[in-house]
């Protein structure tokens, strides 16, 4: 068990801090910098979908509805906390029905 935990820790931590040393030592061409700067938006997309469909694994439409509510709340400029609570409440109500 200790071996598993240490091993999991190393393979998780090394990819996290290695980039710090890469960035300081290797000068990137402009297009690579642009590429890296767009990554957060692409990552958000990939993290949201299709994962959100599996919030309630046997009822993907519940996750989808929760996501739509989150989108609407975010469009009307609600604070992120409100977006989170509104979306959670939506899923909660569906589960109670």
């Amino acid at each position: 068990m200790v071996f598993i935990i240490i091993g999991m820790s190393l393979v998780t931590m090394i990819p996290r801090f290695l980039p710090i040393f890469i960035i300081d030592r290797i000068p990137f061409p402009k297009w690579v910098n642009q590429w890296l700067d767009i990554i957060p938006y692409a990552a958000l997309g990939a993290l949201i979908f299709p994962g959100v469909l599996s919030v309630i694994p046997d009822k993907p439409w519940i996750g989808l509805t929760g996501a739509v509510i989150a989108v609407i709340l975010a469009i009307v400029r609600a604070n992120v906390i409100i977006v989170v609570l509104g979306s959670t409440l939506t899923v909660f109500l569906f589960l109670m029905l």
Partner: peptide, 18 residues
Amino acid sequence: QSMGIALYAMFIGLLIPS
């Protein structure tokens, strides 16, 4: 179970303003 959507909602809440 309902809280399972919280982090997805957060990602959406971060993405939309951008």
